[in-house]
Design a binder for these strands. Structure first.
Lengths: 208, 208
DNA sequence: GACATTACATACCGATTGGTATGTAATGCG
DNA sequence: CGCATTACATACCAATCGGTATGTAATGTC
């Protein structure tokens, strides 16, 4: 019956608080994975409480799915999907993206790994909703690379006998593989070396 | 004060029980990862109790590390390391191993993913002991492939200008990448397609 | 200004977790 | 055989987990 002081936020901005929760949840999930991500930690980082969280997200799973669709996917969109789709020199753009990835690599980013890859490895076999959401991003990635290669092929920049879909699958896989291995080795040097090999593989698809 | 019946195992075999715990722990960790692996579940699978577990392993971390060093590593040894080291046609053997991996792929194995990769993605940034233990296996893998390529190079089966260490790093990375992506897509077909690309890449290292 | 609704804060809950303390039966050793 | 030690089983613990119920202040609507 003690009438504790209910300190509410004086200014309200639902969209901003929702974004704050999403961002904090993304960071927490990026470091500890989804299952080990603690709602308490997320809320501590945002200075919010469970009331806020469960007002915006009915359950922890929904929060995780929203992170994938609104944060992870948006990152890929800005970094890979849009540049590839908008380019009219898709082959050069693809090579350039891979090169940039290798160059701008930071130790922290390396040791945390690719958020998409992390979540796929953890959640795909455990939860169908996660699997579907993650698969959607992964497939869009593959599809985007595949389309870029096909366009380049029409331009005569990629050899005619190349199976663009298979190549795209391998590029995406190797890409994730490089990030995963470098994450474990915690080595920027190995990451660059590995991405350089991927770059060489892609360059090897070019017409003579 | 109720004198409950203490049902002990009538026959004792410490090594066997230890192995049983390790095997059950491996399966749990393979499905749910290390953190989400429940000791209760592991014990239920073995019909043992916490007394047995904590007698053989001082802590959950030690159990996890033992699984890596005694189960995961042993698997790689039998499937990859030993065959590559013992072969005197290392290039053909490497190609054969990759081919076999693609052929004998089963849906369940695919959707569970590579145990090493799973644990690396989950634990490397969280725990230094896990990182070290996992890195040891990964480095041995890379080293084994690298040595195999170098030997093949001396035999004239691999082009002279190939950087064997870099190629081995990429092969291991792409390998893990294929398994990781196929795990998410839960598609044996895509796994085989992806491993075929890797096979082609390796074949491309051959001397003309 | 009254009132419903939104946007949170606070307090509490059952379930599960890794870990420990203690007890006891089987085994190895003299 | 006697006795220490090993190899477990049982019972209990604090901490943490995701989730819920309830309360209240800010906001939108008329």
């Amino acid at each position: 019956m003690t009438r504790t002081a209910h300190l509410q936020k004086t200014t309200r901005d639902p969209d901003a608080t929702r974004d704050a929760i999403l961002e904090a949840a993304f960071q927490e999930m990026h470091r500890h994975g989804f299952q080990a991500a603690s709602l308490s930690t997320i809320l501590a980082k945002t200075d919010l409480t469970k009331g806020a969280l469960y007002h915006h997200f009915p359950t922890k799973n929904d929060l995780g799915l929203a992170v994938i669709e609104e944060v992870v996917r948006a990152g890929f969109d800005a970094m890979v999907f849009s540049p590839l789709r908008d380019s009219n020199q898709p082959f050069d753009t693809l090579l350039e993206i891979i090169r940039r990835k290798g160059h701008k690599a930071e130790p922290e980013g390396i040791s945390l790994g690719c958020p998409l890859n992390n979540l796929m490895q953890e959640m795909s076999p455990l939860d169908a909703d996660f699997k579907a959401s993650l698969s959607a991003v992964l497939s869009e990635w593959q599809e985007t690379v595949s389309t870029a290669l096909a366009r380049a092929q029409k331009q005569g920049h990629v050899r005619r006998e190349v199976d663009c879909r298979a190549a795209a699958l391998f590029i995406v896989s190797a890409w994730e593989g490089c990030e995963g291995v470098a994450k474990n080795l915690q080595s920027v040097k190995d990451y660059r070396l590995c991405m350089k090999q991927l770059e060489d593989y892609v360059a090897g698809l070019a017409a003579r």
